[in-house]
Computed example of a mutant assay.
Amino acid sequence: MNQIINMVIRMVMRRMVNMGINKGIDVAAKRGQGGKDLTPEQRRAAGQQTKRAKKAVRMSRRIGRF
Rank of each mutant, 00 (worst) to 15 (best):
G35K: 04
A46P: 04
L38R: 08
M19N: 07
P40E: 10
V17Q: 05
M7Q: 15
R44A: 14
K54P: 02
G20D: 00
A29R: 06
I25L: 00
G32V: 12
R44C: 05
K36V: 13
R44F: 11
A45Q: 11
R10W: 12
R15V: 10
I9A: 14
Q33A: 12
I9M: 11
M19G: 03
Q33W: 01
Q42N: 05
K30W: 00
Q42A: 12
T50I: 01
M11I: 13
V8M: 14
G35P: 04
R52F: 02
N22F: 03
R15K: 14
V17W: 07
K54T: 02
D37H: 06
R44P: 00
R44S: 09
R10N: 15
A46S: 13
R14P: 06
K54W: 03
G35C: 02
Q49N: 10
A28N: 02
A29V: 03
Q42S: 09
I25H: 00
M19I: 08
G32R: 10
M19A: 13
A28W: 01
Q48G: 15
Q42C: 06
Q42D: 09
T50A: 03
G35F: 05
G32C: 04
L38E: 15
Q33V: 10
A45C: 00
G20C: 01
A28G: 01
K54E: 02
V17T: 05
Q42W: 01
Q48N: 13
N18V: 03
V8P: 04
M16V: 13
N18C: 02
A53R: 02
K54Y: 03
Q42P: 04
Q48K: 11
I21W: 01
I9T: 12
V12R: 13
